[in-house]
Every structure is written in structure tokens, then in C-alpha cells.
Design a protein around this nucleic acid. Structure first.
Lengths: 216, 216
DNA sequence: CCAAACAAAACGATCATTCGTTTTACGGAA
DNA sequence: TTCCGTAAAACGAATGATCGTTTTGTTTGG
């Protein structure tokens, strides 16, 4: 019973997913046709339907791949010795290094989650994982006496979420948005909320590097 | 040459716009058909095409109506005696009182602005207006000696934008998001950036009302 | 009264998906 | 290693449904 070797099978699948990501980032889920994705991937409609039962399946598979990768990277935060530094590292990766296609896709995914229960399950479960992780980290840091927050921890976690949302949205919507300009300020604001007490939490002295390099 | 009286003409037009808003908020621009909008508005396709030349025209008209209303409300900020108080008022209106339909529509509009130049023109012009207004206000407040910001004003304006974006996105995406929980904290963070020096900028003593009423 | 406003059916185009056919890749035999 | 046999994989035209829009005929308000 000759089948494709699992490695090439996954390679073909990922090729389709990559093409779909570019198409969806360019035109959104519902304004992108399967034919466009086929042309972008260099395959026929029949081939796509070998790996995905429907367009919705393709969308869901793409969302799962993206969210799993994000959750993996986010999970590294909990083990980082310097929390604020690790947080800024994640911010630089997702708000500066990440390709515009990926950033626009995440926004598209979030919008779709408001009307497609299946996408909502994928999107919101990772979202909840982030929020819960933040809370757990803050509780741990507080118990260890490294932070002394003036506000209750669930609220701080929500504020974190909202600030991350804002950066992601703005980066996706404004083509020439300069994330480097505001990212340090955001990190400083977050540090204000946590009110760190020890030398372990604040990686750099809060003096010089808050001003952006260029102001128009 | 008997035409409809302008008042009823505008009423019919707005009826279609209202129906389109509900449909677009529910399903997005490209997954909503003209037939759905017709059914929602209780009119026929022929009637819609009397008032709008195309689906894209209908979308653009809806975006213009929404952005004009927002710009009007935002312009009141410049004349407000207490800046932070007026800002929080706007926040409460758009993040708490506003209907979920309107909030989801704005997100849809922003996403569409990344691929439709016409929508981008409408969306980004108001966006730029907000950013410029923020900068102008901050310069004025600084010249009057009411604030003493440690960071350059363009960056602060950007931070404002991003925080507003985050609240709007989160409110649109998470059905039971409690904006009241984080809004006061956001206002406090913004106050930190401005570093007010006089009694005019901070409306309330920065002590008691920062903690949310309920914590889970 | 009459043109604007509207309803409803109908238009070509395009959509996601299917299906009959051809090609290809793999496991085993030589 | 080389060559088959075979079933999965891929192709691409075709499908019915639905899209945005137009057309046709009727209603209606100034």
C-alpha cells in the first residue's frame, strides 16, 4: 500500500499552509479563493483537498500552526531569569522581526474568531493561556519578593494583554509603524505597574535608554 | 421632476447603512452578501443601488459615517478643561457604552484598510488626525507648564494611540471583556508618562480609585 | 401626471468543491 | 541496484450554488 512518506507528506501540507498564509494576509479569509491559494502554492485544487477537507479546515489548520508556535515561544517567558528582558525580547520578535504577512494574519485570525466558533476555540485558548501564565508568573515573583505590585494581579495581567494587543494591531494596520519607538516606553510602563524591588527584575537602570533614537 | 424629499432620502440611506453595519459586524465585509443586507434593511437590491453605486461604495459610506462621528467626538478633547478626565470619558463611551456591533465594525474597517486603498484613506486620515491632535495638545499643555513629560511628545502620542488600539481590539475580540477593570489603570499609566505638575491635569487624587471593584 | 423609487427576476462571473483520469512515488521482487 | 505493480496523489475540467449587479416592469410621491 504505497503512500507518501510522512516527511514529504508534511512538506506538501506546509507548502500549502505557507501559500495560504501569504494569500490570507494579503486579502483576508473570505476574499481569498481556493484557486488563488492553489496558484500561489503551485498545486491543483484536487491536491489541496487531499490535505484539507474544506477551506474552513485549511483556515483552522493555519490558525493552529500559528498559535502553537506562539504558545511555545511564550512559554519560555516563565523560565526566563529576567522577566522584563525576556518580555521585551518577545516583543522585539513579534513586533519588529516578524514578517508583515504573519502579523496581518494574526489580526485576521482574531477577527475571524469573533464569528467562527472553531477559530474562536483555537484563538481564545492560547489567549487564555497567556493571561493565566502572566498571573502565575506574577504570583511567583510576588511570593519571591521580587515585585511589589500596587494593583491586583489579574488586572495587571489584563493590562499586559491589552498593551500587547495594541502593539500587534498597530503594527499590522500601520505599514511604517516604528515599534522600536514605543516598545521601550511600554516596557517601562509595565515595570511601573510591577514596582520591582530587587535587582533581578529590572535588567537595565531606568535612566538612559527610554528616549527613542529619533524624534520627528 | 418629482424626487424624494431630502429628509426621507437621507432616512432611507441611513436605514440601509444601519442594516449594513449590523450585517458587516456579524460577518465581515466579504462574507456578507448584498442580499443579506437587503433582507436586514427590508428593501430590495434595486433600492440599495439607488443610494449606493456598488458594494464598495456602501462600505466606504459606512466607514465615512463612523469615522466622522468619531473625529467629532475626539475633537472635543482639545477644548476640555481637564484632559485626563475627558480622555477617560471618551474611553468609557467607546469601550463600555458603545454597542458590540459598532466596536466590531471598527476592527473590520481597520483590517480592510490594509488592503483597500479607499478605506485606508478614510481610516488613516482620522487616525493621523488623532495622533496630530494628541501632539498639539501635549505641546500646548507643556508650554502652559501643566505637564512635564520625560519623553519626547511624538512618542507619547504614539503610546496613546497604541493603548487605545489595544483597548478597542480587546473589547471587540473578547465578548465579556471588562473594560472598567483596566481603563483606570490605563489612565494612570498615561498620567505617569505626562508627569503632571499642576492641579489642573490630575482630576482626582491618585490614591484610592485605581483598584478595580472586583478581583477574581 | 411622470419621473424617481422600488421590487423581483435574471444575468454573467466566480465561488468552493467534486470527479474521472493521469501521474507519481513507494515497497517488494528480481 | 533495477524494475514493476499498485494505490495514493495530483491534475484540471466540470458542478451546482451563490455572488454582485443589471434589467424589466410596477408603484408611488411631489
Amino acid at each position: 500500500m504505497p503512500r507518501l512518506r510522512p516527511s514529504t507528506q508534511q512538506a506538501r501540507r506546509e507548502n500549502i499552509l505557507d501559500a495560504a498564509l501569504r494569500c490570507f494576509a494579503r486579502g483576508g479569509f473570505h476574499a481569498t479563493s481556493m484557486q488563488m491559494i492553489c496558484k500561489e502554492a503551485g498545486v491543483s485544487p484536487g491536491a489541496v483537498y487531499v490535505y484539507f477537507a474544506s477551506k474552513e479546515d485549511l483556515i483552522a489548520g493555519l490558525c493552529e500552526r500559528d498559535r502553537n508556535e506562539f504558545a511555545e515561544r511564550f512559554a519560555l517567558l516563565a523560565a526566563a531569569p529576567d522577566f522584563l528582558e525576556a518580555l521585551q525580547g518577545i516583543g522585539e520578535h513579534y513586533f519588529i522581526d516578524e514578517s508583515p504577512d504573519r502579523q496581518r494574519f494574526v489580526v485576521e485570525m482574531g477577527v475571524e474568531s469573533t464569528r467562527n466558533p472553531r477559530i474562536a476555540e483555537i484563538f481564545m485558548s492560547v489567549d487564555k493561556f497567556c493571561c493565566d501564565s502572566f498571573e502565575a508568573m506574577f504570583h511567583r515573583l510576588k511570593d519571591e519578593g521580587r515585585i511589589a505590585p500596587r494593583i491586583d494581579i489579574p488586572t495587571i495581567a489584563k493590562v499586559f494583554n491589552v498593551i500587547g494587543d495594541g502593539l500587534f494591531w498597530r503594527r499590522a494596520i500601520e505599514p511604517d509603524f516604528n515599534a522600536r519607538q514605543v516598545l521601550p516606553v511600554m516596557t517601562e510602563l509595565i515595570g511601573t505597574l510591577l514596582n520591582p524591588v530587587g535587582p533581578h527584575i529590572a535588567s537595565k537602570p531606568a535612566g538612559g535608554r527610554l528616549k527613542p533614537e529619533a524624534a520627528s
